[in-house]
């Protein structure tokens, strides 16, 4: 192993904000002045928090604006801030393949009264959003209004709960026996007892009360 020299370290990079992201902020503040709630710069990345109900309009406008042209939806994800009100962030990463502009949009939804909040779907703007929104629905329980087929994508259709929520345990879940693993025909009712999970507590195995209707799955394609 070679001895590490004590050469001077390169200076930590300064992270300059992207000019086109700033142009995006200006554009949104002009066109949707009431919808832009907050603009944050961190490590050169611009995050624009917007009003949830305007997301579909804003995305369509960003895609069609000739100077920006956000034609590529890189990613949608969500963050669960358990203690915060509103509880969830829905995060959109947009990219323009023509102008190389990048920006992050963010919604804040969900409060105590709506444990399963709803946001407008952007599948009409970018078809790519369909899988990402299904994934968020599956793992966070956030519904997307206007999604053509909002069903579970990662987990079996009879699963109860949304694992990426912060109040969902990472482990210690005993699956009911037998767990069918989603191999139930979509058009058949679930056998009684399926989909119930029990949590291990120091006192014993305690069944958690089902947080929702024990998963009656959607038939594929009938989500509209």
């Amino acid at each position: 192993m070679a001895e590490q020299s004590n050469a001077a370290q390169p200076q930590p990079t300064a992270w300059p904000p992207q000019p086109l992201a700033l142009a995006t902020v200006t554009f949104l503040q002009e066109r949707f002045a009431d919808a832009v709630l907050e603009v944050v710069e961190h490590r050169g990345e611009t995050t624009i928090t917007i009003a949830p109900e305007r997301i579909a309009d804003i995305c369509a406008a960003l895609r069609d604006e000739p100077s920006l042209r956000y034609n590529f939806l890189a990613d949608i994800t969500a963050v669960d801030w358990l203690e915060r009100e509103p509880r969830y962030d829905v995060v959109y990463h947009l990219l323009s393949l023509e102008t190389r502009a990048v920006v992050r949009l963010k919604l804040r939804i969900g409060d105590e009264d709506t444990p399963d909040p709803e946001a407008p779907s952007v599948t009409a703007v970018w078809p790519a959003a369909a899988f990402y929104e299904r994934e968020i629905y599956d793992l966070f329980g956030i519904r997307f209004a206007g999604h053509p087929n909002l069903t579970r994508i990662m987990l079996p259709p009879d699963w109860v709960g949304h694992p990426l929520r912060k109040d969902y345990p990472q482990t210690g879940i005993v699956l009911p026996s037998p767990h069918w693993g989603g191999q139930i025909p979509f058009d058949q009712p679930l056998p009684t007892g399926t989909g119930k999970q029990t949590l291990r507590t120091p006192e014993g195995r305690e069944e958690s009360p089902p947080t929702r209707e024990p998963g009656v799955p959607h038939a594929p394609g009938s989500g509209q």
Binding site: M154, L155, P156, L175, H179, W180, G181, G182, Q183
Partner: peptide, 14 residues
């Protein structure tokens, strides 16, 4: 049968 890899709950019945 060489079970090569992690088995998810969804895959177990298969």
């Amino acid at each position: 049968m060489i079970v090569a890899g992690r088995l998810s709950v969804k895959m177990a019945p298969v």
